[in-house]
Design a protein around this nucleic acid. Sequence first.
DNA 1: AAAATATGTGACCAAGTGGTTACAAACTTA
DNA 2: TAAGTTTGTAACCACTTGGTCACATATTTT
Lengths: 189, 189
Amino acid sequence: MKKDRAATEDKIYESFLSLLEEKGPQAVGINAIAKKAGVSKELIYRYFGGLQGLLLQLAKKGDFFKSMLALHDKDLATVEDLKEFAKAGTQELRENKLTQEILRWQLLENNEVTRDLFKYSNKEIGKMFAISDKDSSLNHAFQLMIGGYVYFTLLSKFNKKFITTDLTSKESWDNFDKAIEKTIDLFNK
Amino acid sequence: MKKDRAATEDKIYESFLSLLEEKGPQAVGINAIAKKAGVSKELIYRYFGGLQGLLLQLAKKGDFFKSMLALHDKDLATVEDLKEFAKAGTQELRENKLTQEILRWQLLENNEVTRDLFKYSNKEIGKMFAISDKDSSLNHAFQLMIGGYVYFTLLSKFNKKFITTDLTSKESWDNFDKAIEKTIDLFNK
DNA sequence: AAAATATGTGACCAAGTGGTTACAAACTTA
DNA sequence: TAAGTTTGTAACCACTTGGTCACATATTTT
């Protein structure tokens, strides 16, 4: 039998990621990961230090909020910049399932195992919101709307619609985007 | 030994409720409920038809969205009425832990067991949002902000703060309320 | 080649899961 | 009082959970 630790570590980590992306935080367990990777679970403890270690690795090399952080480096002084930033953020959120599941996870628990991951991801989120912080009046409305966007994104995994809003149609999400844009405008008049 | 079916059913149902309120959807299991009620789990199947039956009972006599529905009967024509309605809604949400946990549950799964409960609670939510539906432009912004309020409420169970916003202070929630109010005003100018 | 180390497996553990079964004790009806 | 029914319990089932263990097989080092 061939032995290759690096390859095995990859198999484990990738299995963990895809399990999280597809089935969410509840499905992420030592047994499930080991089974999916086709490997003995002992190796997860040996190479990563258990689930906690895997989450730490995700925190370090996690590519959530990727496009938003790229935008963050730019100078965001004008209202148009903020609107563009919001738009990029909502798009990233909807496309990045990993980010979604981490945000979902934060609604479920907060303990030793998840601490490192949440600490890191919240730091990234903080960087982004620092931008809208300049206008304190707009800030809370902005936070609420982004929070709402997160909420509906997470909700859409199990629900096709919220009230009359079809969560599967691109149009609905466009309308949400427009609502954010319009609110930013109204607050700046 | 004294035998009293009605009292036993109450013990089971109350244990289920307090378990859900205090520890959330993940903690609600047949064994945990039976243990908390100090009763054999067989009785849960016999009297309620398992967890699914308990959720059905909650759907029927559940008192979530209580104050909001009372308000719903009033005529909500003016902008001031909508603002008052939003304020009552956010307050109800913050106070009613049962409502919170049901909303959290909807972010975790949607299957045979939970179907009836979610169907009913969503019907109630729909009633409330029918109000803001009159103004389509405001509608999406309103939905986002209420969704954000739900998001931060659920988040506050495990997180003391979101970015710089202290989720434990009354002031923060007042600021969110004000942001909603102001947005409604701006959209109606 | 021999010894030491790194890698991997499968069995095992105690505890918990949802669900069922057999049976006892209490209450009701005849 | 005797028979039937309702209420309640505890043991048991197969299965899953996170975690550890002894052991075997590669791969390196001496």
